[in-house]
Design a protein around this nucleic acid. Structure first.
Lengths: 244, 244
DNA sequence: TTTGTCTGTGTATTTATTACACAATGTAAA
DNA sequence: TTTACATTGTGTAATAAATACACAGACAAA
């Protein structure tokens, strides 16, 4: 087992969409004093860990994501590095780090990644730690500087969503236009006219209509679509150009 | 003097525009064997250095930039962290690091920043090292993984230029519309129709026309403009929204 | 006074964005 | 079997933005 690098970590902001709102996966950080039973720490953190000696950042992020969600081959993107001098120096953070392992460092820098998954398709498997989805609008108290990291991730997600077709990563493979619209609306915090939204996305050649409809809904079932990354890659020059 | 952190550094991609093309500031990395006079290394690198124990990334980047250019209060933005396992492991890189200081590390991660300056206004002051502007289209052989870092910085600059008014950071305080157009054209690698370009930028309220003209040109002198960051901040909601 | 070089401007055409309402399809309940 | 309910699917007119395109004006230098 390769050694960890004590002063460098990767933290993953794992976004999931449950066909209604945007969520983020957090890990409980709980510690009680073994003698007095006093609760020393009880809050939540992003999924993160030190990088290993033989790992680059992408590999470390994929490892952490895999451990948390059981998934690989998932959209994963580095968004920012955090290196504040005191970012792990609150009393709680220090107690936690000391408790985790001996050779801990009191200056750790971390590289933030965000990942996008369809959270209707994920079952949380991690047994050692309590893990939970939180709506991004109702986050609990968070350890380290993870609230700040979270905020930056969300900002980047919003930006990227406006310029690249990454929203599909948050939906099931087959989805309806309305699901797509709810996704955009809830992440960007604005509403779109239904007909105009459809008109706009229907022009996108990489949105492939299927001869298939929604099932098990108690209203008129909608047509299902597929996102073709392939078609997107081939035609992206047409789409997101700065034309003038 | 606070100690350096041996395995973490910051590298600055310092972009400058000389009213014609985009340039980047590089530092010569030259080493000759003291006995044989053989040239062991002769290539170029970005401006970079380890972070110090009491410094966050932004501070380290500003320190490096100041040392290189003599300037502070300059546009500076973190764009990506590089953590490849072998990113400083070529024979030349190892020789160089060993030569620099004893407690060197063979795994260094680095955080990339880019900065934008008007390079007509900078005089290169660094005496210990040879420093030079290179057009981004004619880069020399570069040490470490700096060619890769450079490439990523340029990609980010192009993206950002399309979505935010950062081009002005590369121009003198007072500039003409044609200078602005040449800037966009040379960085984005495309040409714009002159009338349409003017029409477009003239709508931007943060582009302030001055009652002042170019001097010392041998043709009709053009009107000068100012970029008002202030007006931009106040009106940015109008400008770069994803409207649908 | 002429030449060279770059500035400054308008219009018509095409394309994209916006605002807006109603019938059709399926399920579930009466 | 009928009705109520929820959601899908669709078109058009008005406005705004993007594009393509050419010539006269200002200044310096010869």
């Amino acid at each position: 087992m390769p050694k960890i690098i004590p002063n460098i970590s990767v933290d993953c902001v794992i976004f999931g969409f449950d066909s209604n709102q945007l969520n983020v996966l957090l890990v409980e950080r709980k510690l009680t004093d073994e003698e007095t039973n006093e609760v020393l720490i009880d809050d939540w953190t992003l999924a993160g860990y030190h990088i290993l000696e033989d790992e680059d950042f992408d590999t470390a992020a994929a490892r952490i994501l895999k451990k948390m969600s059981g998934l690989d081959q998932i959209y994963l993107e580095q968004f920012y590095a955090f290196g504040g001098v005191n970012r792990v120096n609150s009393p709680k953070d220090q107690i936690w780090l000391k408790h985790q392992h001996e050779g801990f460092s009191d200056r750790i820098v971390t590289v933030g990644y965000f990942s996008l998954i369809d959270n209707t398709s994920v079952s949380l498997s991690l047994k050692e730690r309590n893990v939970k989805w939180f709506p991004v609008t109702e986050l609990p108290e968070m350890g380290f500087d993870h609230a700040e990291i979270m905020e930056k991730a969300l900002e980047r997600l919003r930006n990227k969503l406006r310029n690249e077709p990454i929203g599909f990563e948050l939906l099931p493979e087959k989805f309806t236009i309305s699901q797509l619209q709810r996704l955009y609306e809830s992440i960007l915090g604005q509403t779109f006219d239904r007909r105009n939204f459809r008109k706009k996305v229907m022009q996108m050649k990489y949105l492939i209509p299927l001869n298939e409809k929604q099932k098990d809904v108690k209203h008129k079932p909608a047509q299902l679509f597929l996102f073709s990354k392939d078609v997107y890659e081939r035609t992206k020059k047409e789409r997101f150009d700065f034309t003038m």
